[in-house]
Nucleic acid binder design. Structure first.
Lengths: 191, 191
DNA sequence: CCTCCAAACGCAAAGAATTTGCTTTTAGCG
DNA sequence: CGCTAAAAGCAAATTCTTTGCGTTTGGAGG
């Protein structure tokens, strides 16, 4: 029913409609309150009929989650500072800042609100890839670097947890978390 | 608009309606798929008109979030094992298990999906209270115990992060997290 | 190049949910 | 014992969602 993701074939009609709908949704989210955005509105903006959207996405949450996951995909490689700890710190600080914004928070919530669990998984995997890349670079330089799970649980988890349930962490606290994940037992086993 | 929480006055008509609606929502959630539950359905089950619910809660998400926060409120004090680390471990394991269930995950998502940020805050504060209680008991015994923030970021955050974005953590990993939060800098006076 | 096919879209009617104006009930108060 | 403000009921109007059916489209095979 859902058929999220890149679409069936690149270049087909299906892909064009999906692109138009995504763009329309992004535009509307940018210029009006999230609660006022409806499927008929997006359809009108995209130049398609509502039933097309209902058939492809099923409900507003699925569509918005789809759009949010797309926007959450990292668009650049993590900056290189010369050592793994600096790379991770820079990445974590930028990540925390982006996600702490009003728009960032809304996108995360949209992703979580969708039915199928694939959206959150994809977001997690995006972060995983970025961290793995930093870890690889560190390993190539012969540095010790914490395991992927340690970084996920020790840095990413607190950042997202605080954004969702409490108050977003500031850069100072993010720095502490990065420091802490480098302390103690370093498991370099994970590539 | 929302008027979540305990209700205006205990015993009034308002409180009775709220209780009836909450119960109806819980019953329906228990016996049918979450996606099929609608406000008119809940209204019928509760014996009120839909417009009452619309006026009080605004939309389905708000109502379900309200119900979920209620159910997420801890109903007992953390078990006493004799020392803080054991208390925290027992609490964390039980928390992780409860939240990892299908029902637990749905409740968390409901809480997060609501508009106002008060639901997630309240859930966080429930956990805070439980942890603070464990910490107080430890302090009363003269034990060292990690700071509240350290526990939130080091134990609670990974548990919830994995449930929401990845795969729920097993008891073994939860135990590791508890161990780790007791390592390193303890910001409470030494034992 | 042409024809055929399945997938996807548009249209419009039917069905369901949401909003809203107005009336009625109720609990608390003087 | 009335009075009043808040909350609920009722019903009409509006908006969203679903669905059946005909049309278009892009691609595969001849």
């Amino acid at each position: 029913m859902a058929e999220r993701g890149g679409g069936p074939r690149p270049g087909g009609r299906s892909a064009r409609v999906q692109a138009a709908v995504h763009r329309a949704a992004r535009d509307l989210l940018a210029r009006m309150d999230r609660a006022e955005v409806t499927i008929p509105l997006i359809a009108a903006e995209a130049g398609v009929t509502p039933s097309t959207i209902y058939r492809r996405w099923g409900e507003l949450n699925e569509l918005l989650a789809d759009v949010a996951v797309e926007r959450l995909r990292p668009d650049m490689v993590p900056v290189e500072t010369g050592h793994g700890r600096g790379d991770l710190l820079a990445w974590a600080e930028q990540y925390a800042e982006e996600m702490s914004s009003g728009l960032g928070r809304e996108m995360i919530r949209d992703v979580l609100a969708a039915e199928g669990g694939t959206g959150p998984r994809r977001c997690c995997s995006y972060a995983r890839q970025q961290i793995a890349l930093i870890a690889e670079r560190a390993a190539a330089r012969g540095e010790a670097f914490p395991s992927l799970d340690a970084v996920l649980d020790g840095v990413l988890a607190p950042i997202l947890f605080r954004i969702l349930f409490d108050e977003a962490l500031g850069p100072a606290r993010v720095g502490e978390l990065v420091e802490r994940v480098f302390e103690g037992d370093r498991r370099v086993d994970d590539p």
